[in-house]
């Protein structure tokens, strides 16, 4: 049996909104490590990895490891029926082919339950070896989203280059070119407004803006985003979910033929 009570129910709504366009179906796994998901998009270019640790739940009960296959669009439809301030509880009985989402208003004057059919999904998990990244950039997530959106009106791909100068986002399209450079900036009022660049080696990688724009849907989950980049390796784009875990996207680069 499984019962997970999340006081910040709005967080689960945001998680679904951030991944439902990238991935159709996924297994949610529940274990002592936490409530997690790993799923690849149908073109096998991006993987999303989510972890919500048990400490973040008011009640985290699963007496054995459970994997629940869900259609993410259907799950998002159900979660849209929850208020942003609602407490969300997930419940599943052993051997059941359904999961129940219970929504409680903060004042407890409205309680709703929605039962969703589970599905069998054969998914293999990817192993991500530990990598030493050439550069790690931490910046405000809204700034990163803005840059990806702006550049996608000019071109289809973004070149992300980290040098001593800073981190450069470049694109090229039929109408012209665009370059945005963000320099390290730690002289800010709030730590989440800082841009911090750790560079071991200069690195330059090209990615499809369609994917970058898709993963910036996770922006409401975190004030900051971390880009981990190494030549010839997928980028890791991480949004930390305060005190609970993270949502990470692994995105394969494009190469010049």
């Amino acid at each position: 049996m499984l019962e997970l009570r999340l006081v910040q129910g709005g967080l689960l709504k945001k998680v679904l909104e951030s991944i439902k366009d990238l991935v159709n179906d996924a297994n949610f796994d529940c274990s002592a490590t936490g409530f997690s998901l790993q799923a690849m998009d149908s073109s096998q270019v991006a993987v999303v990895a989510l972890l919500l640790r048990p400490e973040g739940f008011e009640r985290y009960w699963c007496d054995r490891n459970i994997s629940m296959g869900m259609n993410l669009n259907n799950m998002a439809k159900m979660l849209k029926c929850a208020g942003n301030d609602d407490i969300i509880t997930l419940k599943a009985e052993d051997g059941s082919d359904t999961v129940t989402f219970m929504f409680e208003s903060p004042t407890q004057d409205k309680i709703a339950d929605f039962e969703m059919k589970l599905m069998d999904i054969n998914s293999e998990r990817l192993g991500f070896p530990e990598a030493d990244y050439h550069a790690i950039v931490r910046m405000p997530s809204s700034e990163f989203a803005r840059i990806c959106k702006d550049l996608s009106s000019i071109g289809n791909t973004v070149v992300i280059s980290v040098t001593k100068e800073g981190v450069r986002f470049s694109t090229r399209g039929d109408i012209g070119t665009a370059n945005v450079v963000c320099r390290q900036n730690t002289a800010v009022d709030k730590p989440e407004e800082a841009t911090i660049i750790e560079m071991n080696e200069p690195v330059s990688l090209t990615f499809g803006l369609r994917y970058m724009n898709s993963l910036t849907k996770a922006t409401p989950l975190s004030n900051t985003v971390t880009l981990s980049l190494s030549s010839g390796l997928p980028a890791v784009v991480e949004y930390r979910i305060a005190e609970m875990g993270y949502i990470r996207f692994y995105l394969a680069p494009k190469i010049e033929e």
Partner: peptide, 14 residues
């Protein structure tokens, strides 16, 4: 010409 790489080129399935 740019080619989009797939994640399978980098990672192994468990």
């Amino acid at each position: 010409l740019q080619t989009q790489l797939r994640l399978e080129a980098f990672y192994t399935f468990n």
